[in-house]
Design a protein around this nucleic acid. Structure first.
Length: 883
DNA sequence: CGGAATATT
DNA sequence: AAGGCAATATTCCGA
């Protein structure tokens, strides 16, 4: 069967503007000539994506022709009041057509008409010829063109996401037919196109009227039926305006266009033109993608000299070298090393794992603290070699960790993009060399591996001095060498040590849960009156809201929400809601924690070895994965019991756990300098009680009941996150107005906090980044965005990151101090886990008295703040008992 | 492969 | 006029 013809119609002007404002980072998007390139970059991304996703046979990008159109003749002020195109966008304008042409598509503009009209006209023509049509624009007006054959995709936020409008979706969301959009616009007007509509009629009123009267014409035919009201008066007075607005909103589908549809057949993209364009614009990532999609991308690489060794001797080592170990698996506790490379400016060597493990010379070099090694991911390298029976010491630089410290955006497993960023362009993506997903494979020809990893060694060497220079420039040297790099080695040890988990305990829970889940599922089916998949939110929502007719509380992008807060509301009247909640809770425990953890117990050792990712979060926190041991249940007793399976690895040992009390609020008290909050901590008061008394004006501490304290606690949390009245109201289930007064009262009572929030946002705007107590940076490009959401998010981030990040820094310092102390004192105690504000150890019982002094000393003394740090500790026979 | 839901700090 | 709290990971479903 021949593929159906598919026409893609792009509103070039609209998308260009969207790209420009969606990526409003004018400093970073410039080419070597200083030309701004942000809009072109975004536009290219849309085009590439559309070609991939839609695979059109025909395509046209339509542009607005100029200031005057037939609409301005109808209405002088049409699009009046619009500010001029910013010069930064205007200078990019000529290049859009260059890009579109290179991509194999056509552009078109027509004097006196807007892009909308061209699109409307061709859409209707194409429909008549049996095409499938897709329109892409940032302008909602075009939704009026949707039909069964034509879909209209509107950009939602920025340009990356599109929302599809089909007639069904429009009916569902607005309750009208696509063509009625015109009537709606006629009544409500359009502020961006600057035509007025009827006074005081907005979308809501317009839709209400249209549902009753279908069209403006019919509405006015029945205008006498309307009850006397201000609205009726407005409608009568402004009848002309309504009809004029409707005319302005109507897309002309009979524009005198001059090309035949067949002219818009998509042609092959012109690689030469496209490459030249990307080069000119400095779009390196697109260039690289282009290379890959064209297959052999090593063609333009310089040859690299390296030597594959069968026999390794002392001569192959020098005082300072780069080292790289290749393994395809992400999880290095289970993966297989497929090649090893090391070298310096004069020579690069490669060897197989067998050759290396057979070599005493290599092992001695690896172990020797004095012999410096530059690596990419010190932790990964250390653990991989450990499993190969090789001890690695003397790691003096980690280029991955370094690039993350310079910019938290660099977090990649893959070296190529980071190397590229630092000017080393001779390296392919791992994906290109080894394939991805199911297609990934170890190359038959080992020289492919060796050449690739030899380049990695060269990349490490190239990057290292550049990263050092960045450290000096941004005052990051101490953070890196005193905190992050030593921590990487400590984390490696923690991961290798692992934590013992008793499978028997989990197996028992599994049996019990399985029986209960079956029964709960049966009961839910009974209530529903049919068998369905309770795990499917879609099927569940059909049962709840359509079959059983329960009230819809909240919607998601794709349908009805069945989230906790929704089900909780429903549970008052519908027992099935509570049953689903209970079922979900248990199902989560079963699949993620009981069965999930069992999968990760190493049979040989009975231990779980997580992987901490040190270079991922934007705040400086660690993350834990495969499995995540930072979110083991604790709030609900049932889930908390999971922790009973986490036990010491030797008989007679204990699990010892210490956590910081309210570290984030203490950090906030410190950096904000707020006297009242500092005082509360200095006097050892319960902070939430203290807040409750201040904010709610309670005189006597004994009058603070649980509920009031809970509310104060929620406000404190909200403050740390950069609060909004809406967020707080959702959280506490109170009105927005009430939430607002809470926050106002809070700021009144803690003026230092309010000042901090204003100042930090100001600082972020000035510098483009915020930083922690230890100078860890987070860049916030969106702080200047004209997009309200992006900007607001950046502002909240500016408030939260120094708090969350400084707390993370403090625990990192504590870990280093603790590790040092354990080693110096020759203790048997081992640090096992880190969970953001707590450390978990295993220890022989006799060391407990030592730890009770040592751990608080190391943790509380990690940093000197204006308020004391406080640590709580517990121990027992399992993690459960230690918390 | 993205979205929804839910687990933690 | 809009719009939605900070940082993560994992599982499941359904296109």
């Amino acid at each position: 069967m021949a593929d159906k013809k598919k026409l893609l119609l792009l509103d070039g002007s609209s998308l260009a503007f969207r790209s420009f404002y969606g990526l409003l980072d004018l400093n970073n998007f410039r080419n070597q000539n200083g030309l701004h390139t942000n809009a072109l970059f975004g536009f290219n991304r849309i085009l590439t994506r559309l070609f991939e996703v839609e695979n059109p046979t025909h395509m046209l990008v339509a542009f607005d022709a100029g200031k005057t159109t037939f609409r301005t003749e109808l209405f002088d002020d049409y699009k009046g009041g619009r500010q001029k195109m910013p010069s930064e966008l205007a200078e990019q304008w000529p290049y859009f057509s260059v890009l579109i042409d290179a991509m194999g598509s056509k552009t078109y503009e027509l004097a006196n008409y807007e892009a909308d009209d061209i699109i409307g006209t061709y859409a209707r023509q194409a429909e008549a010829e049996g095409f499938e049509v897709v329109i892409v624009t940032g302008d909602k007006d075009l939704v009026q063109l949707a039909t069964d054959q034509t879909r209209v995709d509107i950009t939602v936020k920025g340009v990356s996401d599109l929302k599809a409008y089909t007639p069904e979706i429009i009916r569902e969301e607005m309750g009208i037919e696509p063509l009625q959009i015109i009537d709606m616009k006629g009544l409500m007007g359009d502020s961006s196109d600057n035509y007025p509509g009827v006074t005081n009629v907005g979308e809501k009123t317009a839709l209400k009227l249209l549902k009753q009267y279908d069209s403006i014409e019919n509405l006015y035919a029945h205008i006498d039926d309307l009850k006397k009201s201000k609205m009726k008066e407005n409608l009568m007075n402004e009848k002309d305006l309504a009809f004029l607005s409707k005319e302005l909103a109507t897309i002309d589908i009979n524009t005198p266009v001059s090309y035949d549809l067949e002219e818009f057949k998509v042609s092959e993209r012109d690689l030469e033109k496209l490459t030249a364009f990307y080069r000119e614009m400095n779009f390196n990532s697109f260039l690289q993608n282009l290379d890959q999609s064209e297959g052999d991308n090593s063609e333009h690489f310089e040859d690299i000299a390296y030597q594959t060794l069968e026999e390794i001797t002392e001569e192959h080592f020098s005082e300072e070298m780069a080292l790289y170990i290749e393994m395809l698996e992400d999880n290095y506790h289970y993966g297989k090393i497929i090649g090893i490379s090391w070298g310096n400016e004069t020579a690069i060597y490669t060897a197989s794992l067998e050759t290396v493990t057979a070599s005493e010379a290599f092992k001695n070099w690896a172990k020797n603290e004095q012999m410096k090694k530059n690596v990419y991911d010190a932790k990964r390298t250390t653990v991989m070699l450990h499993y190969a029976g090789i001890q690695l010491n003397g790691v003096s630089f980690d280029t991955l960790l370094a690039s993350y410290i310079v910019n938290t955006k660099d977090s990649g497993r893959d070296m190529a993009p980071i190397a590229q960023e630092y000017g080393y362009k001779e390296l392919s993506l791992d994906e290109t060399v080894y394939g991805k997903g199911a297609k990934q494979a170890i190359p038959e020809d080992k020289t492919i591996i060796y050449e690739h990893i030899a380049r990695k060694v060269e990349a490490i060497q190239t990057m290292q001095p550049l990263l050092m220079a960045e450290f000096e420039k941004d005052d990051l040297t101490e953070l890196y060498f005193e905190m992050e790099l030593p921590l990487a080695i400590i984390l490696a040890e923690m991961e290798m040590t692992g934590i013992t988990v008793e499978p028997e305990r989990l197996e028992k829970m599994k049996e019990e849960f399985s029986v209960r889940l079956t029964e709960m599922e049966r009961a839910i089916h009974e209530q529903a009156g049919e068998v369905f998949n309770v795990n499917s939110p879609k099927q569940l929502s059909l049962i709840l809201f359509e079959k059983m007719g329960l009230p819809v509380i909240k919607k998601t992008k794709t349908g009805y929400s069945t989230a906790v807060d929704v089900l909780e509301k429903l549970s008052a009247t519908a027992p099935i809601a509570q049953m689903v909640l209970d079922y979900r809770q248990l199902a989560k425990l079963q699949s993620t924690y009981v069965e999930g953890l069992l999968k990760y117990i190493k049979p040989e050792t009975g231990k779980i070895h997580t992987i901490y990712t040190q270079t991922l979060t934007q705040t400086g926190r660690l993350s834990s994965n495969e499995p995540n041991l930072q979110n083991i249940p604790i709030r609900m007793e049932e889930g908390r019991k999971i922790r009973q399976a986490f036990v010491p690895s030797h008989p007679g040992w204990k699990i010892y756990a210490s956590d910081y009390s309210q570290i984030e609020l203490r950090v906030l008290a410190h950096i904000s300098g707020d006297k009242h909050m500092q005082e509360a901590f200095l006097e050892g008061q319960d902070i939430h009680t203290s807040t409750a008394m201040r904010v709610f004006g309670i005189e006597d501490e004994s009058d603070v009941d649980g509920n009031v304290r809970r509310q104060a606690k929620a406000v404190n949390f909200g403050i740390v996150y950069g609060i909004s009245d809406y967020g707080l109201s959702q959280n506490l289930g109170i009105t927005r107005k009430k939430a607002k007064t809470f926050i106002e009262r809070y700021f009144e009572k803690y003026p230092g906090i309010q000042k901090y929030m204003v100042d930090i946002v100001e600082e972020a705007k000035e510098k483009g980044y915020v930083e922690t107590l230890f100078h860890r940076r987070r860049y916030l490009p969106d702080i200047h965005s004209s997009n309200f959401n992006l900007r607001s998010f950046a502002e909240r981030t500016a408030i939260n990151s120094p708090i969350q990040g400084s707390a993370a820094d403090i625990l990192k310092v504590a870990m280093i101090r603790m590790d040092q102390a354990l080693k110096e004192q020759g203790l048997k105690t081992r640090m096992l886990l880190q969970v953001h504000d707590e450390l978990i150890f295993e220890c022989p019982e006799e060391e407990i008295p030592i730890l009770e002094k040592l751990v608080p000393e190391m943790m509380q003394g990690a940093v000197e703040l204006a308020v004391p740090l406080l640590v709580d500790s517990n121990y027992g026979d399992s993690w459960y008992e230690a918390t």
